[in-house]
């Protein structure tokens, strides 16, 4: 699982079977210290409440599909939760 930020929403009316009624969100991946880290992607929302501006946790590949179990949904990214607390220490400082 990793951290991401919801940048926007997306509607695609014509979709493959199994993706009906799915909320699609545009997510930018983040580093552990919440800095942008790579290309945005489109994820479904297994937390069902994420919206633009939210920092979220997301899963990929098989775990993304499993988040929608028992429905089988052909997706490769899915949001797991909305981050309410995030705390870090500085590992660079006392690096070995």
């Amino acid at each position: 699982m990793k951290l991401g930020e919801v940048m926007g929403t997306l509607v695609a009316s014509a979709k493959v079977d199994g993706m009906e009624g799915l909320k699609l969100l545009i997510v930018r991946p983040l580093t552990s210290s919440l800095k942008p880290d790579g290309e945005p992607f489109v994820a479904t929302d297994a937390s069902a409440q994420a919206g633009p501006g939210d920092v979220v946790t997301y899963e990929a590949s098989r775990e993304a599909a499993l988040l929608h179990h028992p429905r089988f949904i052909p997706v490769d990214h899915a949001i797991v939760g909305i981050v309410s607390q995030h705390a870090l220490i500085d590992l660079e400082e006392d690096d070995v």
């Binding site: 994420a50 946790t57 988040l67 309410s84 607390q85 995030h86």
Partner: peptide
């Protein structure tokens, strides 16, 4: 790996 920090998600998939 080294543990860098903690994350809490109150709104989340039930598994978590």
């Amino acid at each position: 790996g080294r543990v860098e920090g903690t994350v809490v998600t109150t709104i989340q998939h039930p598994f978590y």
